[in-house]
Amino acid sequence: MAAVQVVMSCSLLYYAVNAPGVIYIVSVVMGSCYGAHWAIVPSAVLELFGLKSFGALYNFLTLASPAGSLIFSGVIVNAIYDYEAKIQRATNLNTLTDGEALTCYGTICYSITCGILSVLCLMAFVLSMIVVYRTKRVYAKLYGNS
């Protein structure tokens, strides 16, 4: 999981710097990482917490995805996008008429968001490494030192 988090973080930083053809590369890498994450997490939860509480924990993890999506898409990304659109609108000296939506152009609209998500992925990497460190002794006893 830690390796997947690092790849996701690098991918999001790559999007934030606006390289040519970035959306295609980032879409494939992020999709692969997201799929790998959902393939690894259930087995990691089962391994760490056992079968007794697996159902509750798996449902909690399944709920975390839409909850995080709601928070990031509905609150954080929306506020950043509107802020950048207002800056672009003010720079062009245009006023907003009734019924006209704010529109943001360029990668600046989502660069800050990708930077925030990249930092969160790095935090997830650190937390994953803490779990690895704390469970290292248990696995050494179970499977030997190899």
Rank of each mutant, 00 (worst) to 15 (best):
M1Y: 01
A2R: 07
A3I: 06
V4A: 04
V7M: 07
M8T: 13
S9T: 13
S9M: 15
S9C: 15
C10R: 09
A16P: 03
N18W: 07
N18Q: 13
N18A: 13
A19H: 08
P20I: 12
P20L: 13
G21D: 10
V22P: 04
I23N: 08
Y24P: 03
V26H: 03
V26T: 15
S27Q: 14
V28R: 05
V28D: 00
V29K: 02
G31S: 07
C33N: 04
Y34V: 07
A36Q: 01
A39N: 07
A39L: 14
I40R: 01
V41S: 09
V41Y: 01
S43M: 08
S43T: 11
L46E: 03
L46H: 12
E47K: 15
E47H: 12
L48P: 00
F49I: 05
F49D: 09
F49K: 03
G50P: 08
L51S: 14
K52N: 10
F54D: 10
G55W: 07
A56K: 15
L57M: 11
L57T: 00
N59V: 03
A64P: 03
S65I: 01
A67G: 01
A67T: 00
S69H: 01
S69F: 01
S69T: 02
L70Q: 10
L70I: 12
I71C: 00
I71G: 01
S73T: 07
G74Q: 09
V75P: 00
V75C: 10
V77R: 04
N78L: 12
A79P: 06
D82K: 14
D82N: 14
Y83Q: 15
Y83L: 15
Y83P: 00
E84Y: 04
E84K: 04
E84V: 09
I87A: 12
Q88N: 07
R89M: 15
R89S: 08
A90I: 07
N92H: 12
L93W: 01
N94K: 11
T95C: 07
T95A: 08
L96K: 08
L96P: 01
L96N: 05
D98V: 12
D98F: 12
G99K: 09
G99S: 11
G99T: 12
G99I: 10
T103P: 02
T103E: 15
C104D: 06
T107R: 02
